[in-house]
Amino acid sequence: MIELANAVVLLLLGGMLFFPIVVAPIVFTSLPEVEAGQFLRSMFPRYYVFMITLSALAFALYQGGVGLVLSVPATVCLAVALSTLWVRQSLVPKINDARDAQLAGDAAAGTRFDRGHKLSVLINMLQLVGLLVILFA
């Protein structure tokens, strides 16, 4: 089970790295800013479902009937799944609302957008580090 869980985490890490390294830069260099934003906005819910699904699967595989005491890898995967669920359901809608208000001329909304975006990036980076630690520590 551990080998399968590790394979799921590697797939998750691949997706998490592919999106910001390959997809987002290509979108922003290929499309005008407004269309790029709309395209990425439509992709993020799917990206987050991918992350939630794979991290929850890895959690289940790492935990594998151990009982109520969570292993470290299972705990990390559960934290990734739950934090991603929160980002998808709570933070991203606030980021999107702030961006819409910013584009409509609300200067204060730009600060809210920047703060929310930085928080989402920080959470994603912490998730990446946590997943790398359970694979290579």
Rank of each mutant, 00 (worst) to 15 (best):
Ala107Trp: 04
Pro93Trp: 00
Pro73Ile: 03
Val23Lys: 06
Tyr47Glu: 03
Gly37Val: 00
Ala107Ser: 01
Val133His: 05
Ser30Lys: 12
Leu57Tyr: 01
Ile134Phe: 05
Ala79Arg: 03
Val129Cys: 08
Tyr62Gln: 01
Val121Leu: 00
Met125Ser: 12
Gln89Trp: 07
Ser120Trp: 10
Val8Leu: 02
Arg41Val: 03
Ser83Ala: 12
Ile95Thr: 10
Ala104Ser: 15
Val22Phe: 12
Gly116Pro: 04
Arg88Lys: 01
Tyr47Thr: 03
Leu119Asn: 07
Val92Gly: 02
Arg99His: 13
Ala58Pro: 08
Tyr48Lys: 09
Leu91Glu: 11
Ala81Asn: 06
Leu119Met: 15
Arg99Ala: 11
Leu61Ser: 08
Ala7Pro: 03
Thr75Pro: 01
Ala24Tyr: 07
Cys77Asn: 14
Leu91Ile: 12
Val72Ala: 13
Asp100Met: 10
Lys94Gln: 15
Val8Met: 01
Leu4Phe: 07
Phe19Gly: 01
Ile52Gly: 09
Gly67Ala: 06
Leu126Thr: 04
Val76Thr: 12
Leu91Gly: 06
Asp106Arg: 05
Val23Cys: 02
Val92Pro: 02
Arg46Thr: 13
Met43Asp: 07
Leu13Cys: 05
Tyr62Ser: 00
Ala5Arg: 07
Ser42Met: 13
Val9Pro: 05
Glu35Phe: 04
Thr53His: 05
Leu119Glu: 05
Val92Ile: 15
Val22Asn: 03
Leu61Trp: 06
Val80His: 06
Phe18Thr: 12
Phe19Glu: 09
Ile123Ser: 08
Val49Gln: 12
Val80Asn: 09
Tyr48Arg: 10
Val49Phe: 14
Leu135Arg: 02
Gly37Gln: 00
Pro93Phe: 00
Ser55Gln: 07
Phe136Gly: 01
Pro20Asp: 05
Gly14Glu: 06
Leu40Ile: 15
Gln63His: 09
Gly130Leu: 04
Val72Glu: 13
Thr111Asp: 15
Gly15Arg: 12
Leu85Arg: 09
His117Lys: 11
Phe50Gly: 11
Phe28Leu: 04
Phe136Gln: 05
Asp100Thr: 10
Val8Asp: 00
Arg112Val: 14
Ile95Asp: 04
Leu61Cys: 08
Asn96Pro: 07
Ile134Lys: 05
Leu135Lys: 02
Gln89Arg: 13
